[in-house]
Design a protein around this nucleic acid. Structure first.
Length: 573
DNA sequence: GCCGTTTTCGGCCCGACTGTTTTCAGTCG
């Protein structure tokens, strides 16, 4: 059973959590977390690197010791040090640190004073009134713990970016109404356009922080006020979305925006460059001794550490600092670069809108072309089209293209990849289509090797153009099915096939890391909506966000091209 | 445990808020 990067990362994270509780050197703990971050985002399979004898200590944050530990995990499926550590501290003790207000120190204190080993133990102790007696805790702490436990709030809950937008944008508009507020912007992972966000970070510039905080906590959607000071505050909305506010003076805007946008590892890298140059960088500015030398804009902050401006989507500590230093930052794709949409449904299968409605809506968005890709017959629940109905739709598209100017409708299909890797339409139909989008809608529980083989076989068809939603995941609902994307990408490169970023906010499939992998391997990507109604066509921006996080440039994306240029690229021998 | 144009030891990003404390540790972002 091959070990995945995420498993190695989780092993290190788990060990870091336990070591932290044991009071280990914080820098040692951080080293495990840094390595976990590196491995998690690695655009290669660490297990394969071990197998081929590559030197993992070349990786950032991975030295001799951790390289050996990675090899141990890959070869044995476990880590001896983690097993030993679990002997010293209950494995479930880390559950306690998921309760807001309880960190590693207090978790350990509770273990030692009351033998609290799990969330259940914690609840019992709190209800029995034993917590308040523990040194460092008091009446308020006990009440706070009881309150948190009663909330049963899923602390790990993350919101899809589109959902977060629905709650965050009205709140931001409310904040802007206060006449003391000059600038107000949402920073954090939201600004980095991450596919999910854990909370919302709002940055405000104002002369009187206290007034702004008062206004902030007066928002009608607030369920709970966690903290409230003169420059910062944290609340939880009724939607369970946590929102942090930070108020800084105007001269600190750039430094605060940089600090508050993150990511944390990116910030640490930037600050370290500051330290190397004798500078201190915090949310108020860049300081040389007592003197503020920069901080009004983010550009200024980067400039003081010898870097050009780095776009928020790139700030994940995935090599962007090094790329910036050597002048090799990508020119990221923008929504306006896209000239059409290559995946959309009509009411002929499971869409809501008619062919003509979809065509007119795409034209309205400024598209030059729209591929109509209704399902094939295997997708019965989705009302998939058999050959006869598809032929009929193709004729309708011909008629529509005569009738409507300013948009070209492409004859296409989203063809099921059957369990054995065959495509769900005969070649005689496929050869008459402008575009063939292929995807998996059944048999999610095949083994990784079988699933991979299935797609590789499908790609042998000369009519196979684009692999849609390549991992089948639904964010927060369904994990990706096991599939070896590195092999798929190799085959795609070899055979002239392409992969999709599905822009549906619940999918965003490929994800950012695999987009980057595709780019590095020279496989171009289609950014498509998979719209099932006219309104779904405007989801393209979420796909663009994901593409930008994957470092994609206009040339890396299929549908930045005119249809005549794109059709040449699609022609296979 | 990592790392190096202040290198093989001695550093390692930085500050606000809370609660339990009498000056600060713990937590969080």
């Amino acid at each position: 059973m091959p070990v995945h990067n995420s498993e190695i990362a989780e092993t290190f994270e788990h060990l870091a959590d336990l070591l932290e509780i044991l009071g280990a050197n914080t820098f040692r703990v951080r080293a495990y977390r840094n390595a976990a971050h590196t491995i998690r985002d690695l655009p290669r399979n660490a297990a394969e690197m071990v197998a081929t004898g590559e030197d993992l200590s070349e990786l950032p944050g991975v030295g001799e010791d951790l390289a050996d530990k990675i090899a141990e995990i890959v070869e044995t499926g476990k880590l001896g040090l983690l097993e030993e550590t679990i002997q010293k501290v209950p494995e479930t003790l880390t559950q306690l640190t998921t309760v807001p207000g309880i960190g590693p120190k207090r978790a350990k204190a509770l273990l030692e004073a009351l033998d609290v080993r799990s969330l259940d133990d914690l609840k019992e102790a709190a209800e029995a009134g034993k917590i308040a007696g523990v040194s460092g805790f008091g009446e308020k702490s006990e009440q706070a713990i009881l309150h948190e436990l009663a909330q049963a709030r899923d602390v790990e809950r993350r919101f899809r970016i589109s959902t977060a937008e629905d709650f965050a944008e009205p709140f931001l508009a409310y904040i802007r109404k206060h006449n003391n507020v000059k600038k107000a912007i949402i920073a954090g992972s939201y600004r980095r356009r991450k596919e999910t966000v854990g909370d919302i970070d709002i940055l405000v510039t104002a002369t009187n922080g206290k007034e702004v905080v008062e206004h902030f906590v007066g928002y009608e959607e607030i369920d709970q006020i966690i903290s409230k000071g003169t420059t910062r505050s944290t609340v939880v909305l009724r939607s369970e979305l946590q929102v942090d506010l930070r108020v800084v003076p105007e001269v600190s805007y750039g430094a605060a925006l940089h600090y508050f946008t993150g990511s944390k590892p990116h910030n640490i890298q930037v600050r370290r460059r500051g330290v190397e140059r004798g500078l201190k960088i915090n949310e108020y500015g860049v300081f040389k001794g007592e003197e503020r030398i920069a901080g009004r804009t983010e550009e200024e902050v980067y400039d003081t550490v010898g870097l050009p401006y780095i776009l928020p989507e790139l700030r994940e500590s995935r090599g962007e600092i090094e790329a910036a230093e050597s002048g090799e930052l990508p020119t990221l794709i923008q929504l306006a670069d896209l000239r059409g949409d290559l995946h959309a449904h009509t009411n002929e299968s499971d869409g809501k809108s008619t062919l003509k409605e979809m065509a007119l809506a795409a034209k309205e968005l400024g598209h030059d072309y729209l591929a109509v890709t209704d399902h094939s017959k295997n997708a019965r629940i989705a009302g998939g089209l058999d050959e006869r109905r598809l032929r009929k739709q193709m004729e309708e598209i011909d008629r529509l293209n005569e009738e409507v100017d300013g948009i070209q409708i492409l004859k296409a299909s989203e063809v099921d990849i059957l369990d054995d890797g065959r495509l769900d339409h005969p070649d005689e139909v496929l050869e008459d289509l402008d575009l063939v989008v292929c995807s998996i809608h059944s048999g999610f529980n095949l083994s990784e090797s079988k699933q991979t083989e299935r797609v590789l076989r499908a790609m042998e068809s000369r009519y196979f153009h684009i692999l849609a939603h390549p991992t089948g995941r639904l964010i927060g609902k369904r994990k990706p099915y096991p599939i070896d994307l590195e092999k798929i990408l190799e085959a795609a490169k070899e055979r002239g096939c392409y992969l999709e970023i599905n822009s549906t906010p619940a999918r965003l499939d490929l994800d950012d890391v695999h987009c980057r992998m595709a780019k590095d391997m020279g496989v171009k990507i289609a950014i498509s909506t998979d719209a099932h109604s006219t309104s779904g066509l405007s989801n393209l921006r979420y796909g663009v966000d994901q593409a930008r996080r994957g470092w994609l440039e206009p040339d890396d994306v299929l549908n930045t091209r005119s249809w005549s240029a794109l059709s040449k690229l699609l022609a296979r021998s």
